[in-house]
Computed example of a mutant assay.
Amino acid sequence: MSLISSTALGIGLTVAGATPAAADPYDCSTWYKSSTTAAGTCTNGTGEFRVYTRCDRPLARDYTVYDPIWRRVGTTSTAICHSGGKPYGADIQVH
């Protein structure tokens, strides 16, 4: 058996023996709940997620905030800008 055939067989056995991984949260959306708060939710999958957003502060450096709590699918996550920051670029982080 050639090296290429052996490698292909080994790869095929590895893929065939793999177990399906849990599906990360998906069908996620974000919105701005107020002038200081970004929110988000995921409606399908398993695992946990949290929303994060950039915060724009006039005359100061922008910063990123995350919901400090990982949330379960079907719940709402929020990230709050402090010090006069306005949220922009909200997104979802999953794990």
Rank of each mutant, 00 (worst) to 15 (best):
C55V: 00
L59K: 07
R50D: 02
S2Q: 06
T36V: 09
A79V: 08
C81G: 08
G74P: 08
P58N: 04
G74H: 09
D67R: 07
T37D: 11
T64L: 04
F49W: 04
A22S: 15
A22V: 15
A38D: 07
A79D: 10
S2I: 03
I4T: 13
T36Y: 11
R72W: 01
L3K: 10
T30M: 03
Y63L: 01
D91L: 08
D56G: 00
T75W: 09
P58L: 05
P58W: 02
K33H: 10
G10R: 13
V15C: 08
R71C: 05
I69H: 10
L3E: 12
A90P: 10
S35A: 11
S2V: 02
V65K: 03
R54C: 01
T37Q: 12
T41R: 09
C28V: 00
A8I: 14
L59D: 13
Y52S: 07
Y88M: 02
S34M: 05
A60F: 09
T75F: 06
I80W: 02
K33T: 06
H82S: 14
T46V: 07
V65T: 13
G89M: 04
T46D: 12
W31H: 08
R61L: 04
R54M: 03
A16G: 05
A23G: 02
A23D: 12
D62E: 10
S35H: 05
T64K: 07
I4H: 07
R57E: 00
W70T: 09
Y88H: 13
I4D: 12
R72K: 14
T41S: 15
C81A: 09
S5V: 04
Q93K: 09
T43M: 03
Q93Y: 09
C81M: 09
L9P: 00
H82N: 13
K33I: 01
S34I: 10
G84P: 01
S83R: 14
Y63D: 02
R61G: 01
M1N: 07
P20V: 10
F49M: 08
A79W: 08
G47M: 09
V94I: 15
I11M: 13
V73E: 00
S83L: 13
G47S: 07
L3G: 07
R57S: 00
A60G: 00
A90R: 05
C55S: 04
A60H: 02
Y66D: 14
V94P: 08
S29L: 11
V15M: 13
S34Q: 05
W31C: 01
Y88N: 06
A18W: 12
K86R: 15
R57M: 02
G12A: 15
T36Q: 12
M1Y: 11
L9A: 15
G74T: 03
D24R: 12
Y26Q: 10
V51N: 07
W31Y: 15
S2T: 15
G84Y: 00
P20C: 06
M1E: 12
R71M: 09
P58R: 03
G12K: 12
K86S: 08
A18F: 09
R61Q: 11
I69D: 14
S29G: 14
T19V: 10
I4P: 00
Q93G: 04
V73G: 00
V73A: 01
G84N: 01
T78C: 05
D56V: 06
C42Y: 02
V94H: 10
G17Y: 11
P87R: 04
I11E: 05
T41P: 00
